[in-house]
Design a protein around this nucleic acid. Structure first.
Lengths: 227, 227
DNA sequence: TGATGCCATAATATCGAGTTTATCGACCAT
DNA sequence: ATGGTCGATAAACTCGATATTATGGCATCA
């Protein structure tokens, strides 16, 4: 019983919709770390069947956003400082690798797409946080997208999602309001279009490490968020 | 209707069994690259229901061993020289990273486990090829296992499986019969227990690159296998 | 004769029910 | 009183069936 009107979403499949919805809910923290994910509750929440939910949870398990317990169902992945540090470290390693390859393969089409994604991110502004985060990820992925290594891209994308989850958990991307990340983004973009791999890598990694150090501090006194 | 006797397999779940079985079949080539994976056929083949098969295929999609077609089901992942080169490159990068961290964290327990896994691999011999490959993977993973980075381990494990698939496809691990890989393994082990990260990395990467160059040659004239 | 639209077939994707398994509280034995 | 076992409840897991969607052949029309 599906009307022709919602055929516009070219990705029409209950499983895929459930996957996107659940991933979003986990990333932004609507589903808390360690929270039990009961099929029946999610089934009613997403208004779909049990099969799509199970399949989506299986996929999220491979993304490390969901953990599968022996025969006891699923739960949202736990968080920990060790996990956070691991993600940050791997992200720095893999993204530097991808960025350098991207720059080595630089061509006009890539640079155009890169500038465009940066522009879209700037234009979006901070009005809608989730929309901005979408653009933000698009920009960072665009930096790497010319590495011609789909597997590496997949890894970077996964690590990005794992990381952004910590940002949300720390309190609605608090860091953005204190630091001037716009300047950092512009600087990274500039170095990339100049094909300066060393400078671009250095700026990208500093970008991550500053955010990382900030978030890492929150593990000690998580009550310091006052807005 | 399950007897108590087959409770010995502590991982008793139709989904997990289907996952292992299908992964094995794809890796060793019983399911060819690009082959359509019809649910019904696999269902009868594995003697299980459709749900476990679907869930297993979903998981394998995240392992990059299965591709999901829009709304047209699943197929075994395609192979290509580009894909092979990418896997080899990433493997070298990530495993060197993991190996160096492993050695940096070296302790007795790790060295013991490492020596043991090497011994088991040697003892297994080439009688049962699949059993040997099992030990072989265990040895290589043991080298990396002390890096204290579960995500990195997961990536390396995935890449290992993707790579070994090409070995099987090239013709039943032909390379092992021509080169003296035993000596190479022993040399890697020696450098690792000596905590010589540079030497161990160099030997490990040479190990991979030699195998890689050999397999890469098979893409040009795949008919050269004569046994 | 070639191309196009339609219909039959087959396979997928989804749903709802039944079965197996874990959890938790109560009860009994020590 | 404490430890262990048993039984009721709830949940996950699995199965069979239905509905939806793609595919390939056939008829029709230009």
């Amino acid at each position: 019983m599906r009307t022709a009107s919602d055929a516009v979403g070219q990705e029409s499949s209950a499983t895929h919709r459930a996957y996107l919805a659940l991933r979003r809910m986990i990333v932004v923290g609507e589903l808390q770390p360690g929270e039990k994910l009961k099929i029946d509750r999610l089934r009613t929440l997403l208004d779909t069947g049990a099969s799509p939910v199970r399949e989506a949870l299986s996929l999220l398990t491979s993304d490390l956003l969901v953990e599968r317990l022996d025969q006891r169902g699923f739960r949202a992945a736990e968080t920990s400082r060790e996990n956070f540090v691991e993600i940050l470290t791997l992200r720095c390693e893999l993204e530097e690798m991808a960025l350098r390859q991207s720059i080595a393969n630089a061509d006009e089409a890539w640079e155009d797409a890169l500038v465009l994604s940066h522009h879209k991110m700037v234009r979006e502004g901070r009005g809608d946080l989730e929309a901005f985060e979408e653009r933000h990820k698009a920009f960072h992925m665009a930096l790497l997208s010319n590495c011609h290594s789909p597997i590496l891209m997949k890894f970077c994308s996964q690590l990005y999602d794992l990381n952004i989850r910590y940002r949300y958990l720390a309190g609605k991307a608090l860091d953005y309001q204190k630091r001037d990340v716009s300047t950092e983004h512009a600087a990274i973009l500039e170095a990339a279009v100049d094909h300066d791999a060393d400078l671009a890598s250095e700026r990208l990694l500093n970008h991550y490490r500053q955010t990382g150090a900030f978030l890492n501090g929150l593990f000690s006194n998580p009550g310091s968020q006052d807005v």
